[in-house]
Design a protein around this nucleic acid. Sequence first.
DNA 1: TTGTAAGCGTTATCAT
DNA 2: ATGATAACGCTTACAA
Lengths: 350, 350
Amino acid sequence: MARITERSQRGGHSGVSIEDVAAAAGVSTATVSRAVRGLPRVSPLTRAKILEVAEALGYVASSSASGLATGRTRTMGVLAPFVSRWFFSKAIEGADRELHARQYNLSLFNLGGHGSNRERLFSKTMVYKQIDALLVLCMALTPDELDHLQKIDIPLVVVGGHVEGCAYIGIDDYAASATAVRHLIDLGHRDIALLHGDDETDLNFDVPRVRIRAFKEVMEAAGLPTRPEWDEWGDFTLRSGQEAFRRLWARPGPKPTAIFCASDEMAMGVVFEANRAGVRVPEDLSVVGIDDHDFADAMGLTTVAQRPDEQAELGTRMLLDELNGTAGAVHSAVAPHQLIVRRTTAPPPS
Amino acid sequence: MARITERSQRGGHSGVSIEDVAAAAGVSTATVSRAVRGLPRVSPLTRAKILEVAEALGYVASSSASGLATGRTRTMGVLAPFVSRWFFSKAIEGADRELHARQYNLSLFNLGGHGSNRERLFSKTMVYKQIDALLVLCMALTPDELDHLQKIDIPLVVVGGHVEGCAYIGIDDYAASATAVRHLIDLGHRDIALLHGDDETDLNFDVPRVRIRAFKEVMEAAGLPTRPEWDEWGDFTLRSGQEAFRRLWARPGPKPTAIFCASDEMAMGVVFEANRAGVRVPEDLSVVGIDDHDFADAMGLTTVAQRPDEQAELGTRMLLDELNGTAGAVHSAVAPHQLIVRRTTAPPPS
DNA sequence: TTGTAAGCGTTATCAT
DNA sequence: ATGATAACGCTTACAA
């Protein structure tokens, strides 16, 4: 049966293959392969000729075919729980920068939603044999997901959180939180509330817990009391910050003069809601967050800055270096953070 | 030469192949292939046996191999100019939802940056033969990029903008803008400024221009003057909104009582900066945007809402349907928009 | 420097 | 219902 027929029967795409180029250039496919990939062992003239023909024919190598032949997909996976939240979208941009520069593709796996309540599936099958390396963005993982992760034998690093047995990159959450809390204490605050992000499911996600611990220990070290009724919970979103403020102010009894929020989005929610309630920031209430969200500067939010894009970029670089043969390129690293004092913190009202 | 040696020489990954499963299950690879893909013509018993063996061995099909055999990658490309801006991150989430549900992968191509000043490369090569379809997110394309786009003979739809000769999905920008402007006029405003987003490079991006035209025509129809000095430019970001406000208020002469912004981010920038400058919103200045950004509700921003995630989801669905044989599944569609009146608009000061 | 040919792991046709 | 087997398009020893 004619080859042409075969092709169309198989739904074959109309692409020109390496063989077409070889034929048109009067050389073998091996030579074309070397030529188009810029490998040595091709005479300048032949190479020029081949490149010209390839260009004219609009030849693009099939990634499936070369992936099959080499065992590499030139694609890195990025696993994220959300894409439209600050930390993640910035991290994705960072990863993309590095990948793009090194001619790799980025395959995005969005887990969509938190924890076990919302349906979400991540299994080895999803990513295995489709990517050469995996960048995991900070998130709560179920034991099951964790298990799948361990079973994937490709280079892996996690950014912004700890996963047992994996290299991770992120800020020193304890130090960052402690800095924020001390800033409030140094300003003279004694009545400080906490807006943390621990969702208390037993998922693997210790970032919130570390931030809570830092708050409690710094308060204690300063000889200040922490009140359980000023311990509010949020899920790192703006809305949860608004709700936390409302709960805090709806409750009878004394009010804090400052609040430490585990993320800028929550902090901004607090500020917005305080404004609505007629509570002045920072005159009546000081607010500090963590992140340095894009909106933080415009709002004048005091915060502890971090750069998720750079963290992801670094993680990606390690992964790619590892793939390129640099053994040990992947390792844990601590990213910098920095207190930025703006206009939402001030001494407490006297 | 032994097969094993071959494998390790070629850097072969240690994966279990279909042949291993076939051998372990005592059947042919053809049967395994049918079984794992849930195709008919496999007896229930054999299927069960095969699935069990496959599971035990941890078999996952190689996407390269099946891609090569079928001519399909089960991957859709998403081309975006940014990922951390509201419209795009939402759209990506929407596309991902649909893809995920249909077992497709999402390959993200971030053009990183606007126009020709920042280096950015998008060529046919980047995406060709790596994806089965392409979703282009609203952006300014260079003539060169446009050219490459046309040459890719795979299903394609653009979301949030028009590209000549391509199916597109998005709101009716003219109607949406007109609605916003009329809202201001209905409130009694006569002195309305415009914060548009046209960058005046000659890139293919008419969304800003349509919004400008709507503004001018609605003003004219209402018999209201538009003043060139109240025509401000921005790049859709928060910062550019802040800067526009400052320029507007720094200029001598009368001030507008309202401002129509081509995006929520810019509108929020205006609100923040007005607050800092002591200009009260909405008492002194009404502000309206377009988008219904995540922060719009918390800020009380009046806006014309749109849902980029749903637009992208629809586009993705069309693309996938087309790939599944539904000819004509891909076509242009108008997405809904809706005025949401909140607290940044009010009658002008009397 | 160039070509030959044997894989790479699937899928799909055609027999059985 | 199952099995042989020929593609799919590329890479890479190895031979020339």
